[in-house]
Nucleic acid binder design. Structure first.
Lengths: 187, 187
DNA sequence: CAAATCATTATCAATCTGATATATATCAGC
DNA sequence: GCTGATATATATCAGATTGATAATGATTTG
């Protein structure tokens, strides 16, 4: 499932322009499927080309025309098919963990900042998810609730792990090793 | 931090060829920074071009020459700099959660399969991490332990969330809605 | 009133993914 | 002894994605 398919899925819930979709990605999908304009606009163009969505230009005073997309019957069929016959991936790409892997090469201060920043972002994620959850009514579909809950729980678990285990990364023998390696680097 | 920088980091721990690096990515980085040949080989070529690593061809009987890469002093400097001055990202891309978001459109069986498959993969991840942890001796750096533990704990928390909350995705009113929507799709 | 943000479009170079190709060696099982 | 899978090792390529950048006028904020 690529951004194109996800856009199609969102359009199955209601008409929208690229800007609207981007806002949905920011509010509901941010923590598990980030997407920027650079993928959304080409996706919409491709979908329209393939006849899976139709586009209507809506002029506005002062602002650029809204290009409102509506899913077609063919589009619905293609989306349902993707949903039912695609093996879904799930992958993390963490430069944070990659950096921590080399914790030996970081001085204590830098390490502290990295961990604190990450904790802050995890807390922000939880707050952001709980904020959108508060605005939901009883009609909000179960899937949306499930994925939001998942995001919040994962962020809490990650924060707890970092807090509980950060002491493992700072032991007395580090200062020495860093000096040696930096010397070898001829810095 | 891109694949290129991570390759440089791994080479700071010892000489290796592309194939070796790929194995390291599979064993230690799989759960938080996957990378394939398509990114590793170009990365090594770029690093060599920039003088951050040196390459020696080692002929072998029957197999292709090993191209063994060794980090240079300049390479070490560049890596330390990246480690200390890059804002590290951390992002999930989950087609699984995207699919579950549209749980209303899935029939019960498909939903069950998706959840069971995910649970199985989470358990595999835990097993794989615990397996590599068992092979470590006392000299294994703290960073490697920390990121492995992180991966295992996250996988456990994810599995627990799925098991505890999967019932929210299957309620009686679903059958009806699916039929309606499929009808609207003109399938 | 200046500065920032909102609303809306769009493009582009660099990077990454996933599949594919090539060639030989070994090893398990029939 | 053959067959098929797996391991060793290289590399490329089309398509997807990222992150930055650009334009332009309206409205909100300080």
């Amino acid at each position: 499932m690529d951004v194109k398919t996800l856009c199609l899925g969102l359009l199955s819930l209601g008409d929208a322009c690229g800007y609207d979709l981007k806002k949905t990605f920011e509010s509901s999908f941010k923590h598990f499927f980030p997407a920027g304009y650079g993928s959304i606009y080409p996706a919409l163009a491709d979908l329209a080309n393939a006849g899976l969505v139709e586009c209507t230009k809506v002029p506005q005073a002062g602002k650029p025309d809204r290009k409102v997309y509506r899913i077609t019957d063919s589009g619905r069929r293609v989306f349902l098919d993707a949903l039912n016959h695609t093996e879904p991936q799930h992958k993390l790409r963490s430069e944070f963990l990659a950096t921590i892997y080399f914790a030996d090469l970081l001085d204590t201060e830098r390490l502290g900042v990295l961990l604190d920043d990450r904790l802050q972002k995890l807390r922000d994620t939880v707050a952001q998810i709980e904020h959108i959850e508060q605005e939901w009514g009883p009609e909000t579909p179960a899937g949306a609730r499930f994925v939001a809950g998942f995001g919040a729980e994962m962020a809490k678990a990650a924060a707890e792990y970092v807090e509980t285990n950060r002491h493992l990364l700072t032991n007395a023998s580090n200062g020495e090793r860093i000096s040696e390696i930096k010397a070898a680097a001829g810095g």
